[in-house]
Each structure stands twice: as structure tokens, then as C-alpha cells.
Simulated scan of single mutants.
Amino acid sequence: MGIIPSGATPILAARKQGKKPADLILLSMVGDLPNEANPVVQIKPSIQYDWSWLRGLAACFWTTPETYQAKHIIDAAKAMPGWLYLWDSANQKGYDIFVIPTLESIERPQAQWNWLVDPMPWLPFQNKAFALGDVICN
């Protein structure tokens, strides 16, 4: 197992005991998220993480246009088949995240595919509810 992000160790320990968080995991690319009741995991742009601890869980990357890192999102999505979201805190907009192969890649074996993030924007009522702390995901 590779590098686990800060804040993920208790989640990993619980997973090893057959447990998992009931709440959406927030993967923060913007630093601390004060006053958050959900589990918060700190993501640093320069580190390549092992995302296997996320498998089967629901997670939301908390980011801004300045801190957005497609590579982390793609790596997490490929490792976790579960529910993955993105919250652009600067613009107060959320997205369901899908990772898909590039068109040029599909002629090659899957191990050689290049991937891209394909976000599906939330509706205005979903953005408002999430901004107010009502997690409407899943």
C-alpha cells in the first residue's frame, strides 16, 4: 500500500475491521474545512496517493479552480468504484464525477487508456442544499 492521505488513517483502520463511514468523505484540496461534521481527508497536489482505502465509499473532492487536480480525481475514481463528487467551493457548484477514456484511447488495450474527468453539474437545488450542509448525495 502506498501513501495514505492525512485524515484517512482512521477510515482505513475502520475498514480493516469491516466498518465504513456512514457519511460522505470530504477530500479537501483547499486545506482545513472547519465546522464540517463529515470525515475530512487532506489532499496535497504534489503527492501521489494510494486510493484503495476509498473503494465502495462515497467521497466528494472539495476544491476551487485554483486547487483542482484532475490526476487525483482520475486516480481516485479508477480505484474506488463508488460515488464520487466534486464541490467547487469558490463557485458553490457541485458535480457528479465520471471518469471516461479519451476517444483516442479506446482502440488500445484498457491498460493503455488515457482518462479524463467528465463532470455532470448538479441542479441549482442540489447546490443550495449542499452549501447549507444537507448532503444529498447517494
Results as ranks from 00 to 15, higher is better:
92 Q>E: 14
66 E>K: 15
122 W>A: 04
115 W>C: 06
91 N>Y: 12
62 W>N: 04
75 D>N: 15
125 F>M: 09
56 G>V: 09
5 P>R: 05
7 G>T: 08
90 A>I: 00
69 Q>W: 01
105 S>Q: 05
82 G>P: 02
113 W>Y: 10
12 L>G: 01
109 P>R: 06
126 Q>R: 12
127 N>D: 15
46 S>K: 12
102 T>Q: 11
72 H>K: 06
65 P>E: 08
53 W>Y: 14
100 I>F: 08
26 L>T: 01
123 L>Y: 03
61 F>Q: 05
132 L>P: 00
107 E>N: 08
122 W>C: 03
80 M>Y: 03
78 K>P: 00
50 D>K: 01
63 T>I: 10
68 Y>E: 11
51 W>P: 05
71 K>H: 09
85 Y>H: 14
75 D>P: 01
81 P>E: 14
138 N>Q: 13
16 K>Y: 04
121 P>K: 07
111 A>D: 10
130 F>R: 02
42 Q>D: 08
66 E>I: 10
74 I>M: 13
118 D>C: 12
3 I>D: 08
83 W>Q: 11
29 M>Q: 15
14 A>M: 10
66 E>T: 14
54 L>N: 03
7 G>I: 07
87 W>H: 09
85 Y>R: 08
103 L>A: 11
98 F>A: 13
82 G>W: 01
108 R>N: 12
80 M>A: 15
75 D>A: 15
94 G>L: 06
55 R>S: 13
134 D>P: 00
104 E>H: 07
23 D>F: 09
43 I>S: 04
83 W>D: 12
85 Y>Q: 06
17 Q>L: 15
2 G>R: 08
12 L>I: 10
11 I>F: 01
32 D>P: 09
54 L>G: 05
125 F>V: 12
62 W>P: 00
1 M>N: 07
52 S>C: 10
84 L>H: 05
32 D>S: 14
69 Q>P: 00
97 I>E: 04
3 I>W: 04
